[in-house]
Design a protein around this nucleic acid. Sequence first.
DNA 1: TCAAAAGTGTTTGTGGTACACCCATGG
DNA 2: CCATGGGTGTACCACAAACACTTTTGA
Lengths: 222, 222
Amino acid sequence: MAKTSEVFVTVDIVIFALREDDLQVLLIKRKYPPFENTWAIPGGFVQPQESLEDAAARELYEETGIRNVHIEQLYTFGQLHRDPRGRMITVAYFALVPKPLAVQAGSDTTDAQWKSVYDLPQTAFDHAEIVNYALKRLRYKLEYTAVGFQLLPLDFTLSELQHAYEIILGEALDKRNFRRRILQAGVIEETGAMHMGDGRPAKLYHYRPSAVAEVKTRRLFP
Amino acid sequence: MAKTSEVFVTVDIVIFALREDDLQVLLIKRKYPPFENTWAIPGGFVQPQESLEDAAARELYEETGIRNVHIEQLYTFGQLHRDPRGRMITVAYFALVPKPLAVQAGSDTTDAQWKSVYDLPQTAFDHAEIVNYALKRLRYKLEYTAVGFQLLPLDFTLSELQHAYEIILGEALDKRNFRRRILQAGVIEETGAMHMGDGRPAKLYHYRPSAVAEVKTRRLFP
DNA sequence: TCAAAAGTGTTTGTGGTACACCCATGG
DNA sequence: CCATGGGTGTACCACAAACACTTTTGA
């Protein structure tokens, strides 16, 4: 049988956050060829001594300083000529981060910015395909499982949560139905505290740690 | 940044078929270490000149002689010590084959047999985990999309299809409800021909090629 | 007292579930 | 005419969808 293969493995990570009433992804501008000066999603080679999940978490931490957020394997892309340097296979992950910190360029990059998923710039490799696939998956998951609050701070109001869903799904949702279904799903609970804002104060909610992450509910939003 | 990594990439493929009123997977018995003489799912190194999908299709063809069946990427497993020979990452696929041909041992194997997913033997590496993950995914897909007929011959009766679903889901289904929902989903249509059997002849159906493979229907069997 | 956002119930429609009998053929 | 599997309809229930007004606070 075949012995081995000059094949390299990277992880790339689509980092989602809600900013400016928009769903955005973190892109970095590449300093070196190939695709010098082109936007790309963060990623890098898998080191022999780290698991794929660890590699993804490390990339996320290196680019954003964020740890302990929702990370999930997306898909593995292995088309032949993805990368002019040789045979590259990338295991793509996506992450949902609640607090989009200010980001700064790393050593391999000349810039790092949050960009709207609805208006992506030109991107390196097949990264536009990867981001779009991640968006599709995020929407799908939002309908079936309750991951939306992973993009919000620990405590949030129902209006904020609904607003997040509307940005991601790209459609308006009915307030009463939204509240009923989210609460029936039983994945969040009141903190007891209130959020003071412009109008009437709002109850704050948080994720119920006891709830299973992948609640296989009925569709939340069919 | 890190340069590269002594990381090897394989594809492994979980091949499902319905045999003997049972859901079975094709396992091969390894001829060489590691895990000499242990059952494993077919797989091998990805060659530099083939895509991941091509590698999976090639492995399937080498082991079963079957082409042009439903193959789908499952998950990429990259734990550190999966393989004693070094750092191995495997991109797992699963395939649904309609006609389980007789299989025979290949050059690297001493045996090849269909084994029940409900009664797996001891397996090499993390292959039991991979098979169980594939089963979970197959069941999940069966509930939401209509892939069941990929395990049947081109033409089939509704009773045969229902029987397939029952074997995979592990529960009895109501005949009238099953028929109504499958037909409403609109993915199969009558061929016009009949199947002659022991009792009343049954209408034959086949897949409607025009139907999208991944029909995102309501759950077929919630 | 006004602006701004939070909060709350009911009606109607659709789809899921449960359930039992007649039909067409071969032997 | 009997055995075998194929084929069909309805009543009930639960959940989804549509829809508008009242409440609480700060300015």
